[in-house]
Simulated scan of single mutants.
Amino acid sequence: MALPTWPETLPHVPLLAGLGAPTPFAAPARTEFEDGPDRMRRRAFTRLVKEPVQIRMTRVQFQAFETFYWDTLDAGTGHFMMEVVLPQGCETRRVYIDNGEYSAPRLGTKYVLAMTLCVFLDS
């Protein structure tokens, strides 16, 4: 099943995007033994970057975002495809909204959608 895509009617260029550093590796798994030292083992790991993003939207665009969030993302895995800014340039990557949390304070007649995207680097 294909992942949903960020709606074309919504802006995707962030007002603020920090190019976060990827997490280099997962913490090792520790196994305790009665006799002898603990054993440390590598864990499977998916490389991703957490990117704080802010996107300015009109009221209609914000309503379209909420429809996308509640009707599409909330009904599935929450993962979707979106064009993001990476050090090597703009690329379409698999992402999800960290903890499913976002805010959208009003700024005059616009909304500023603020969220942290988890961007998969190996997709």
Rank of each mutant, 00 (worst) to 15 (best):
M1E: 06
P4L: 04
T5E: 06
P7K: 04
E8N: 07
E8W: 02
E8M: 02
T9F: 07
L10W: 12
H12I: 08
H12S: 14
L15R: 13
L15Q: 12
L15Y: 07
L15F: 05
L16V: 09
A17D: 03
G18C: 00
L19I: 07
T23E: 08
F25C: 08
A27V: 15
P28R: 09
P28M: 06
A29H: 15
T31P: 09
D35E: 14
D35G: 06
G36S: 13
P37W: 10
M40V: 11
R42Y: 14
R43L: 11
R43P: 04
F45V: 09
T46Y: 04
T46P: 01
R47K: 14
V49N: 02
K50R: 14
E51N: 13
Q54T: 08
I55L: 10
R56F: 01
M57F: 13
M57N: 14
T58K: 12
R59L: 14
Q61I: 07
F62V: 00
F62H: 00
Q63W: 05
Q63T: 08
Q63N: 08
A64M: 13
F65L: 08
E66Q: 08
Y69W: 12
D71T: 15
T72W: 02
T72H: 02
T72Q: 02
T72V: 04
A75S: 00
G76E: 07
T77C: 11
G78P: 09
G78H: 10
H79F: 12
H79K: 09
M81S: 05
V84R: 06
V84K: 05
L86V: 10
P87E: 06
P87S: 05
Q88Y: 02
Q88S: 06
C90L: 14
C90I: 15
E91L: 10
Y96L: 10
I97Q: 02
I97A: 02
D98L: 14
D98F: 14
D98Y: 15
N99R: 15
N99E: 10
N99L: 10
G100N: 03
E101L: 10
Y102R: 03
Y102W: 05
S103T: 15
P105C: 02
P105M: 01
L107P: 08
L107V: 15
T109N: 02
T109E: 00
K110Y: 15
K110E: 15
Y111M: 02
Y111L: 01
V112C: 06
L113D: 12
A114P: 00
M115A: 10
M115W: 11
M115S: 07
T116K: 05
T116Q: 03
C118F: 06
C118T: 05
C118G: 04
L121E: 04
L121C: 03
D122Q: 09
S123G: 13
